[in-house]
Each structure stands twice: as structure tokens, then as C-alpha cells.
Design a protein around this nucleic acid. Structure first.
Ligand SMILES: [Mn+2]
Ligand SMILES: [Mn+2]
Ligand SMILES: [Zn+2]
Ligand SMILES: [Zn+2]
Lengths: 142, 142
DNA sequence: AATTTCATGCAACGTTGTTGCATTTGTGTT
DNA sequence: AACACAAATGCAACAACGTTGCATGAAATT
């Protein structure tokens, strides 16, 4: 995985702008999937449309992926690598904590192969786990 | 599974109103998960807020469940049974066709037990499959 | 430095989620 | 059958988001 924001932009042929670098820095420091509104709050002043387009571009270009977590608030996380504008390769599970509302990527947990039912052709499989995260579990038993 | 709209409302202690009966009839005839906007179009004239509250009530009372399909449009389908205001028991997978956009319940496909990673406690697991449905597959090879 | 291509900021609009409130309707009781 | 109560509906209203167009500013290319 690339570690520096500048290199991530280079690798995906994206212009090096202030907003993009700042967004990437936030993602790199976070260990969870982030919503657009959360990102907005990290800035003193930023245009929500610019943020919207930044996320859309990042997703299209394979910089970030959407973390499906069962809520109605889309969350995003950095792609591990290999993803580009043609294809995403992040098929790991995502975990949503019902207690704190955080969403985590479970990179190590990959959806098993499923045989297609009813004559369908299955191209991708995503798993969404819900429960209580480690921090919240430890918090309730002091 | 209950087959008549009237009985579904009785079983869940819901008042028998025109909108509710009509919505249930649409769900009973459909073999796929439906969005609120789709339901709206099935009526000549209906208030969207009433429809919104109808779906919310149905979901709370265990009449319908939300079908997670990876899109940003919530879809709903009838619960198989046993669901009530206290708990939902529909943990089957859902399939989303990238071609026609339809979402289907895969009642027969239940998420396997997962061991909790990273010290998390997993309460529920949902699976979302994407690909091409039977109708669309047959449509392209005439 | 000039040019070109693209990102940004802002206005604007549509959709959806959500609540408050007055009115109508369903249902159990006189 | 009429009544009374609780709940559902219709409508106004607002917030949050997603999305596009356009003028302006910034990055990359020459
Ligand atoms: Mn992820
Ligand atoms: Mn379902
Ligand atoms: Zn938590
Ligand atoms: Zn299809």
C-alpha cells in the first residue's frame, strides 16, 4: 500500500490539489471507514460539493472504495492497492458497530465463493457484519 | 407465510387501511424487493409521506425487511414469517442485478457463521451478491 | 511564461428523510 | 347504530444529500 498522499495521486494520475491531499491524509490516519459528513467536519472550511466530487473521483479511480455497512450513510476507505479506474479489488467484509456507529474494513475476511442460485450469474459477493466492536466491548466492562 | 393482506395486518396488530392493504397487495405480487419510489408509481395518487410512514411501520412491526443491495436506494420485501416488532429473522442474502437493477431475496441462502475478528462481537451477518439475473442472462442470448 | 486541461466554489434544483398539526378513519364500546 | 378514543392520513415545512452548470482559479504541459 502506498503511504504518501502525493504518491497515491501520482499512481492514479490525479492532480495534486490541496483538498485531495488533505482528504488523503485524513484517510491515511483513520483506521475506519469515513462518511462525507465526517470528512466535512475535519475541515475548518471546505465546499461540500468539492468534497463530493473528490470522493466520487477517488472512488472511480480506485483510490477509495465504498464500505457497505447496512446504514444509509455511505462510508469510504482507502483501497489496499491494485485498484484502478477499471476495477476495484476490495471484496473484503465490513463490520458495523451498533454501539458507536463506526465501520471497519475487515481486510482479512474475504467473501467465499458462492454458487449462483436461480440461474443468476454472481460476479461479486460482499459481506456486512454487525455487532459490537472491541473498543465498545471493553468500555462496558471496566 | 401469510397470504392475505388482511391477515398480515391482523397478525401484526395493525389497522386495516386502504393504503396498507394496497401496499401489501403489491408486495405479495412482486417476486423482488421494491423501492419506495417504485411503490409510489404503482398508485394513481398517494401521499409520499403516508407511504414513507407505512414502510417504516411495516419494517418496525416485522412485516417487511430492508434488502441491502449495495445501491443507495433502499428496497423492501415481505418477511417470510416469525418476524415481529421485537426482532427480524431474515438473514438471507440479497442479489442485485447490475443489468436491470432489480433486487431479489435469496431466502435459501443464509449467511454462514463467522468468527469475530479483532475482538469484535458479531451479532448479524448479511450477504450482498451482485451480478446478472436469470432474465437478463437469457435476454442477451436470443 | 503561455497554454491547456482540470479542480474548485457557488448557485440551483431534485429527491428523500423527517416532524408537526389538523383532519379523517378504524375499531372497540355503549 | 351511534359514540369515543386512538391511530392513520394529507399537507406544509424543513433538513440533508446528491447532482449538474458555469464562471473562476490552479495544476500540468509546452
Ligand atoms: Mn473496506
Ligand atoms: Mn430479503
Ligand atoms: Zn463500537
Ligand atoms: Zn436483471
Amino acid at each position: 500500500m502506498q503511504l504518501r498522499p502525493e504518491q497515491i495521486l501520482n499512481d492514479h494520475q490525479l492532480r495534486r490539489t490541496a483538498v485531495r491531499l488533505a482528504v488523503l491524509r485524513i484517510f491515511l490516519e483513520a483506521d475506519e471507514a469515513l462518511s462525507q459528513s465526517y470528512l466535512e467536519q475535519q475541515f475548518e472550511q471546505v465546499d461540500r460539493i468539492t468534497l463530493y466530487r473528490t470522493l466520487r473521483t477517488f472512488e472511480q479511480k480506485g483510490v477509495i472504495h465504498r464500505a457497505l455497512d447496512g446504514t444509509d450513510t455511505p462510508k469510504y476507505a482507502l483501497c489496499a492497492g491494485e485498484c484502478n479506474e477499471h476495477a476495484h479489488h476490495d471484496h473484503h467484509a465490513h463490520f458495523h458497530c451498533d454501539d458507536c456507529g463506526r465501520t471497519y474494513c475487515l481486510e482479512e475476511m474475504v467473501a467465499p465463493r458462492f454458487h449462483a442460485p436461480r440461474g443468476f450469474r454472481v460476479d461479486e459477493a460482499h459481506m456486512v457484519l454487525t455487532g459490537v466492536c472491541k473498543e465498545c466491548l471493553e468500555g462496558v466492562s471496566p
